[in-house]
Amino acid sequence: MTDAKKVLATFQVNGEPHEVAFAPHKTLLEVLREEMNLTGTKHGCELGECGACTVQIDGTPILSCLSLAVDAVGRDVRTVEGLAQGHELTPLQHCMADLGAAQCGYCTPGVLMTAEALLRDNKSPTRDDIKQALAGNLCRCTGYLKIFEAVELAAARMRGETAEPSKESIHGS
């Protein structure tokens, strides 16, 4: 029941202040989606079991379904909507789009927020590093392979290399 008294707070989301009134038992997921209309952040279980709701707080990917919104006040919250600069996608977004790493696209925001944090900390992640990082993001469409390849490709391009996807990953062996 939501007879709880609302609090008014200002969130810093994707570099912009959002002033929102919300009940203190609301999760960050609920406040992002329902109060700020930032519906790019998804939900698949609301119990911390799927990773679809991943956002970054102070650069760390976390599960917004298990975070209280009040605890995010005064912190730097980043969602999938904050990745692209204007119309320009990030290298990772480009690579995900090019490789078809987003099939239905529902796990994609969570995957992007997790992988983006990895690429910030690790310029040359191995396949195993990528798996370790994405071990909390379920995907039912891709079998993860195109996601791994997109992260690898994006890492190479972010290092300034002129990398292209392998022939095998696009056309098969």
């Binding site: 007879d3 009940a23 038992h25 999760t27 609920e30 119990l47």
Partner: peptide
């Protein structure tokens, strides 16, 4: 969506 019940937060 599964949601939290109300509570007072300290």
């Amino acid at each position: 969506m599964l949601r939290l019940p109300t509570f007072t937060y300290h």
